[in-house]
Structure formats: structure tokens, C-alpha cells
């Protein structure tokens, strides 16, 4: 027991996978584009193809930004927990090794936000 307590202190974590109705959480951040104040949290099916994230999930979130339509997804650099990572667009989240509450980020070389300010 790590916590200081007067008796046994054991509780279920509030964010267990089974609490999300078949979905798992995926966090996504776009580097150099801090106009979106923080990375996003999406509840997604582990069976969803990664391509669907790019084509169906991200646009509704990011397309306010003038840089978004300029992204060449073939040149995007990906990171998982901060380390370089290469997703297979045609495989599912699960097959790409993405687990509940994993965090991925993408960098879009040449695109650095409003007036190059990383906004």
C-alpha cells in the first residue's frame, strides 16, 4: 500500500476500459498548432481502421485551422508517448498496438501554424 491510510485502501480506477461501452480512449495532439489549446480525447472502437481516424474523426475537430487542408498525410511524422511511431493506415487501432488511454501526436513538416507562431 503506497498511500498513507488508517486501513486497507483499495479502490477501482474510475477510468477502466470496461466503463467506456466498448470504446477505448485515444488522445491525439497536433504539434506546432496550439490554437487547439490541448490534445484531444476521443472514445473510439479498437476495431476502427486508423484511416478512419484521419478521414472521419480528425477533420471535424481540426478543420477550423487553415493548415489542416494542407496536410500531406503521407509525410506526417507520428509519435506515440513521445517516441517516433509509424501507424499502418489500413489496420485497426488494436492492430496498430493502440491501447486504452494511449497518446499519439503528429507533426506536419512545413506547417507551423498562424504566421509561423505554432498557433
Amino acid at each position: 500500500m503506497v498511500v498513507a491510510a488508517v486501513k486497507e485502501y483499495k479502490f477501482e480506477p474510475l477510468d477502466r476500459l470496461e466503463n467506456f461501452h466498448g470504446n477505448q480512449l485515444l488522445y491525439v495532439g497536433w504539434e506546432d498548432h496550439l490554437m487547439f489549446c490541448a490534445p484531444f480525447c476521443f472514445p473510439l472502437s479498437p476495431q476502427m481502421p486508423f484511416r478512419a481516424v484521419l478521414e472521419q474523426v480528425l477533420p471535424g475537430t481540426y478543420d477550423y485551422h487553415p493548415d489542416f487542408s494542407k496536410i500531406d498525410w503521407g509525410k506526417v511524422e507520428w509519435f506515440k508517448s513521445g517516441k517516433p511511431w509509424r501507424p499502418d493506415h489500413d489496420r485497426t487501432l488494436d492492430e496498430n498496438g493502440l491501447k486504452h488511454k494511449d497518446v499519439i501526436r503528429f507533426r506536419t513538416p512545413g506547417l507551423t501554424g498562424i504566421k509561423g507562431s505554432c498557433s
Binding site: M1, V2, V3, A4, Y9, K10, F11, E12, P13, L14, D15, N19, F20, H21, N23, L25, C41, P43
Partner: peptide, 20 residues
């Protein structure tokens, strides 16, 4: 890291919304 048992119970509004 010092008291993980305490904070695994965090009531995070975003996750609570997604849990319904």
C-alpha cells in the same frame, strides 16, 4: 506517483462524459 491509489479515482469530467 507518490499516491497512485488516490488519484486513480480522479473524477475527470471528460472521461465521465464519455462514460455517459
Amino acid at each position: 506517483d507518490h499516491e497512485p491509489e488516490k488519484y486513480v479515482q480522479s473524477w475527470l469530467p471528460v472521461h465521465q462524459i464519455y462514460q455517459g
